[in-house]
């Protein structure tokens, strides 16, 4: 019973990633594309945590925290470049 829920969740999040990557490739402005990549990364995070339970490996859950932190850093880089034209380096 539990495996059906987890596998259904993985398939639903993969459909979400496939639909969102159309916007990430095609999107009319640069802001749409960065927003789509942001959301793709958060869905990837949930797929990782569901797979870590399905495969019974406990060490795969340490990879979740850097994903969340670095996609926030990407948002800050793009926003700083759009506002002031340079990144202060």
């Amino acid at each position: 019973m539990l495996e059906f829920v987890i596998i259904g969740g993985i398939i639903a999040y993969t459909i979400g990633i496939a639909l969102l990557s159309v916007i990430a490739v095609k999107g009319p402005t640069i802001g749409d594309q960065v927003l789509a990549i942001d959301t793709i990364t958060y869905f990837t995070l949930v797929i990782f945590s569901l797979l870590a339970i399905l495969l019974k490996q406990s060490l795969l859950t340490v990879t979740l925290i850097p994903l969340a932190l670095w996609v926030y850093a990407l948002d800050v880089y793009v926003s700083k470049y759009l506002i002031s034209g340079d990144l202060g380096a």
Binding site: G31, V76, S79, I83
Partner: peptide, 8 residues
């Protein structure tokens, strides 16, 4: 993050 992006 999305607030920062919207402001930019």
């Amino acid at each position: 993050g999305s607030h920062t992006l919207a402001r930019g």
